[in-house]
Design a protein around this nucleic acid. Structure first.
Length: 429
RNA sequence: GACCCCAUCGUCUAGCCUGGUCUAGGACAUCGCCCUUUCACGGCGACGGCGCCGGUUCAAAUCCGGCUGGGGUCGCCA
């Protein structure tokens, strides 16, 4: 039985690096049919916080991954102490300065990494390693080895930053009489400046990405493309598609720079493939309780979402851009100044009159009347289009004008056009 | 500094293992053009890369060595 694990420490939130390590473990497990366990490395009682733990578990689930077993190291201190005693009795460890040290002899260590092939350490900087700290809590490398052995984790898939821990751990496996697992060290995710992700760039928690309007499918899709490629020039693929073709041997050795641009593109792509019901549902969680006026019904809301589906990158873009669909009191944006400077009251008044005569206020009829009006007063359609859009939306750009008009309805359209005429008349603002 | 990892367009990558089919393919970004009432979507196109030196070979992005460059680790943190 093969087992893999993801072992986060609840001393911080789950960020993209951790999420990617979790993802590759999950993909490996679901591809090979082995067990995927979650082990919470909370031996640092001081720094471990429930708040972080909650976020980690919530984010993993939100991203669409599920685990088969979960363990907490803080509940296993007794086990680690027993093994420390055993090593002391065998003369492989000793007490010093209130702590317990594991000692080892110089030895060339060879790792046969699933991703990198052979890694050879000819020497190690130290000849001993703390396994029980003087405050009596067990140390990382020790717990890690004991747990992986006891939990029968025989494929250790983790970040490249752990390569230098590996020889020490191998020595411990041997000292403890355990079988050494196979290792796979994943490349790191780098910031655009090179080097690690920082608080300033990218070391953002998954929860924050969610709050920024990213869809879980998009984050997962982006992360799997960082260091792995499904081949056949495929870019957009789901977790379940990926799990069918994932192979740890295809993972790259090179660190990858995290690109917000590409994440944005993928996010937009997923938004475009969502159906309206789904999108409407998701969007509500970004809007806040009091965003929608009470008169808005499902049908209207869905129509509005459909209007913006093609043009948003993140879910958070929605609130601002669709505001004019729910409220009348918007202001004309600064960007519309050049359009507003051109007083077309006479022409717009004719348009108002003509539109008022449209009985069936549907896109096709509106457009026909609109074009006819332009022709009658001998102007290009765009001459009327731009100010009309400003009148209806307050912006220079937005969704198709005629569908927007249909959705807003005759009354709102006419009122807003009249408001613009008043503005030109100097009665407003 | 010591130990270790890595090296294809600005970025993510395909190709490398099993040298020739690679005048190196795709995607993001950028820039054009088209579609069009604007924006977006979509379509088309452009720009742009095998870090360097040497070796092996009839032939090297692909194999070997060195150099350079980038990264990681060196906590009684995990």
């Amino acid at each position: 039985m093969v087992k893999v694990r993801f072992a986060p420490s609840p001393t911080g939130y789950l960020h993209v690096g951790g999420a990617r390590t979790c993802l590759f473990n999950w993909l490996y497990a679901r591809n090979t049919g082995c067990k995927f366990i979650l082990r919470i490395e909370d031996t640092d009682l001081e720094r471990s916080k429930k708040e972080y733990l909650d976020e980690i578990l919530e984010s993993i689930k939100w991203l669409g991954m599920e685990w088969d077993e979960i363990y907490y190291q803080s509940k296993r201190f007794e086990i680690y102490h027993q093994y420390a005693e055993k090593l002391i009795k065998e003369g492989k460890a000793y007490r010093k300065e209130g702590a317990v040290f594991f000692k080892y002899n110089f030895e060339t260590i060879e790792i046969d990494d699933l991703i990198r092939g052979k890694i050879v350490f000819k020497e190690l900087p130290k000849q001993e390693e703390v396994i029980i700290k003087s405050n009596n809590s067990p140390a990382y490398n020790f717990c890690c080895v004991i747990d992986d052995a006891l939990m029968r984790v025989n494929r250790v898939i983790r970040g490249e930053d752990h390569i230098s821990n590996t020889p020490k751990q191998i020595l411990m496996y041997k000292g403890l009489g355990f079988e050494v697992p196979q290792f796979a060290h994943l490349p790191l995710i780098l910031s655009p400046q090179g080097g690690r992700l920082s608080k300033r760039f990218g070391a953002t928690s998954i929860r924050e990405y969610r709050q920024m309007g990213y869809l879980s499918e998009a984050i997962i899709n982006y992360l799997m493309l960082l260091g792995w490629s499904p081949g056949e020039d495929k870019e957009i693929l789901s977790l379940s598609e990926a799990k069918n073709i994932f192979n740890i041997k295809d993972v790259n050795k090179t660190g990858g720079v995290f690109s917000v641009d590409k994440l944005n593109w993928i996010n937009g792509a997923y938004i475009r493939t969502k159906n309206i019901q789904e999108l409407a549902k998701i969007s509500k969680s970004y809007l806040g309780e009091d965003y929608l006026p009470s008169w808005v019904n499902e049908d209207y809301f869905h129509k509005v979402i459909a209007l913006f589906k093609e043009r948003i990158v993140r879910m958070t873009d929605l609130a601002d851009s669709m505001k004019f669909c729910f409220y009348d009191d918007f202001e004309y944006k600064e960007e519309t100044k050049t359009i507003l400077d051109n007083d077309l009251s006479d022409k717009i008044n004719i348009l108002i009159e003509n539109l008022n005569n449209v009985n069936n206020f549907m896109k096709v009829d509106i457009e026909a009347e609109f074009r006819k009006t332009a022709k009658d007063i001998d102007v290009k359609v765009r001459v009327l289009v731009h100010p009309t859009r400003v009148a209806l939306t307050g912006s220079k750009n937005g969704p198709g004008l005629f569908e927007t008009m249909e959705i807003l309805g005759k009354e709102k359209v006419l009122n807003r056009l009249r408001r613009l005429v008043k503005y030109w008349g100097g009665e407003n603002e």
